[in-house]
């Protein structure tokens, strides 16, 4: 590999834009980037689920609605910070349901062939 020579390149620095909104940052610090295994496994939700919860992307909400998932409408985390443990459990349960849903729809599409 050729040695990298980036130093003293005036055009290089990218300090990041001013006044960035949270969604712009989240979709970069969470969704993309290089995948590196840490020692402490943090299960950052799929950005899809996370952003639904935070109502950051209506497009995702529409997708979820089509799949019959509308739990965020009554999600206590969206109105208060209470019931956090319950939320965690709910989260697990929802992922399980989502998996079940997805495998079912795969089955159906396989059947229809």
């Amino acid at each position: 590999m050729t040695d990298l020579d980036f130093r003293q390149d005036a055009s290089y620095p990218a300090a990041g834009p001013q006044n960035t909104n949270l969604a712009d940052i989240l979709e970069r610090v969470l969704d993309k980037g290089i995948v590196i295994a840490g020692d402490i496994k943090i299960d950052l939700l799929d950005i899809e689920l996370l952003t639904i919860r935070l109502r950051l992307f209506v497009a995702s909400v529409d997708t979820a609605k089509k799949a019959g998932i509308d739990w965020w409408e009554t999600d206590p985390a969206l109105s208060s910070h209470a019931a956090r443990n319950a939320l965690k459990d709910e989260n697990r349960e929802l992922r399980a349901r989502l998996e079940a849903l997805e495998s079912r729809s795969e089955d159906t599409s396989a059947d229809s062939r």
């Binding site: 980036f6 995948v35 590196i36 402490i40």
Partner: peptide, 18 residues
């Protein structure tokens, strides 16, 4: 951002812990 403004930088994902 601060580091990248000084040197070529690869950002790591949020919550990379050792």
């Amino acid at each position: 951002s601060a580091v990248a403004s000084q040197f070529p930088t690869v950002p790591l994902p949020l919550a990379t812990l050792y």
